[in-house]
Amino acid sequence: MSFLSIEGLTKRFGNLVAVNQISLEVEKEGILSIIGPNGAGKTTFFNLLTGFYRPDSGRVILKGRDITNRPPHENIKEGISRAFQVASLFDEMTVLDNIRIGVQSYMGVKGRLFSRFEDNAEVREESLKLLEKVKLQEIGAHTVKALSHGDRKILDLAMALTTRPEILLLDEPASGLAGEEQARMVELITEHLRKELKLVIVEHDMDMVFSISDHIMVLNQGKKLAYGTPQEIADNEEVQEAYLGGDRCHARA
């Protein structure tokens, strides 16, 4: 039994088949990247895995448990979590509070009616640890609105970690990042996260994808075009023809 198995996953929007009969066996370790041109169904695929969309057919089985039609808030208990393409934060709160919202959810104290949010030392401590891990500890007291784009992306990822997932879906973690900010993100992913959990990444930056991935799945028009190691994908003629060649040259240009 594989860690995550996806069986014939399909999602239609009217006449458009956004995700078409995707089946995949995912192992527990390493980084899996999903690539494909815009509109290939990558984000839809993520939304299906995390319960934000309900598939028209197919199943998602994580650690032997069918999580197909479960709402997102239940899915995280199974150890699956996600970050967002456009950093999705609580804009009126501080950086620390953004993390605390996640941590108090994980610790099961989020619904306490009469115990003060500020007074929960356990949640606070845990949140500070996480901030340190992603190197945001110095701006913990800042309001999220005032953050740079790079810090927003890191915080978005950190929030996804608050629920201690075993598998984490990152939707374009490097989008809009360049230079030092991108290096920070790549370091976080490859030096820290890779060792701790399974990562599934949607990304457009081909250099990044080919350097960090253990496996790559190529999507095109909602269908799985290819799956394999970076070397296998790079050598795959079908992939080169359909998509990769042009884009890769473009990326290097």
């Binding site: 995280i76 959810s105 306490r112 608050t162």
Partner: peptide
């Protein structure tokens, strides 16, 4: 309370709250 803060999180970003 923690509950009250959860309400504010839901107001500010229900999708993220759901994901958490």
């Amino acid at each position: 309370s923690s509950f009250g803060k959860s309400l504010q999180a839901i107001k500010q970003n229900p999708i993220r709250a759901e994901a958490l």
